[in-house]
Write a protein that binds this DNA or RNA. Structure first.
Lengths: 223, 223
DNA sequence: ACCTGAACACCGTTCAAGT
DNA sequence: ACCTGAACACCGTTCAAGT
């Protein structure tokens, strides 16, 4: 963080860039042009600089993305959580999802580290703690965290991908083609649901799903 | 599929490439060098051809990847499923996971289509059908499928990413650094678990997680 | 210390041309 | 119909040099 702070005196000319400026510019590109347009080269252009200048402030692109998440997580409001451990477990998991839902493109990077790199550790602490207070052994609490984590990551990934796809709405998707070819004798259930499939699968039922999963987990681990 | 079959007679010289040959070469690269080395250019080199020749047999790279999955899914043994619907639901979901576990790199492409593009539709039919036989309304059955789908996708993604990372085992991961900085007063639970975290999170508990989720879902939707 | 220019080793895809 | 070569518009990153 040092290189960004303008020190007293005029020891040489001031730096043109700083980590802060770089991260902010990256966030701007992300907001305005989407993840797939965020490249080191594009970022340098945004800053009227060169790609290599960035590497003075950031080790590589992954670190830049993690910095973005760090900023986002630290700005995220930290709401009061319910007292009741079961409710708190659900609320923490929901919170984790909410933070990530703001930057779903990070799913891939995050996945590699169980999210533990970032300043959202307190959320995970809450999930594990609430599970233990619900009567789980520590090992079971970690299992619960993992299931929740997989579920959240999966939903984010699917959402991200279907968002990408909606952009290219030229021809019918693979799904639409597969559904058109459905025969009632071989796939009766899917056939019956085919007309409503899109509607049914695009409903936002994240919170409900989370609740059901958590209840299922707790009933199993700590009956 | 037509261009690959060697027709009778000798109407012009035989084609050098075919969809079959291309897909098989792609699979070879995948097996031997991993997903990140599978590019259209690399594939063309493998076939002693040019990148553009491939585009005569495949619309784009995504289609090629879907073809790979298609082949894999069609070769996959189709085991007998239990009669009992609850058991069948679990078994179908496990099967879906097993098929995909063989090609986790496809998670990103698959996510965009709810997997419905491929010849594994019968698995999904089974999941939906078993849910309905367990007493769910069709809408609830679709919800159950979605939760399972998110969970599977998430686990695949995480596994894929942590596999990539293990390759570059040079310096400590972000997770390790975050754990090293843990203080017992701010994160008591994680602090207590930190020594065993890697071990606990790398256990293969997929099947157990799936079972717990399914039971939770069914108890909620069809008590 | 901070920044630049040129280069390396890649991508997916298009376009115009060859046989 | 099947294939090629050259090109377009990109990537992340390294290296040697400038001030």
């Amino acid at each position: 963080m040092q290189p960004s702070s303008p020190r007293s005196g005029k020891l040489g000319r001031p730096a043109l860039l700083s980590r802060d400026v770089i991260v902010r510019a990256a966030q701007r590109i992300l907001d305005e042009e989407g993840y797939e347009n965020l490249s080191m080269r594009r970022l340098a252009r945004e800053l009227s600089s060169t790609p290599m200048a960035l590497y003075h402030y950031v080790r590589d692109k992954d670190q830049l993305l993690l910095l973005l998440l760090k900023v986002k997580a630290s700005k995220f409001p930290r709401p009061p959580l319910p007292e009741d451990p079961r409710q708190r477990l659900i609320a923490s998991a929901q919170l984790l999802y909410d933070i990530l839902a703001d930057c779903p493109f990070l799913a891939e990077i995050l996945a590699s580290d169980d999210l533990l790199a970032v300043s959202a550790l307190w959320v995970i602490e809450n999930i594990v703690d609430a599970s233990i207070e619900c009567g789980c052994a520590p090992e079971q609490a970690v299992d619960i965290y993992r299931v929740i984590w997989y579920y959240i990551t999966g939903e984010l990934l699917v959402r991200l991908a279907s968002g990408r796809q909606r952009a290219s709405l030229d021809r019918p998707t693979h799904r639409e083609k597969a559904f058109a070819a459905l025969r009632p004798d071989s796939h009766p259930r899917l056939f019956a649901l085919s007309a409503r499939w899109s509607e049914l699968t695009s409903r936002d039922s994240h919170h409900q799903g989370l609740e059901v999963i958590v209840n299922g987990l707790l009933n199993h681990q700590a009956p």
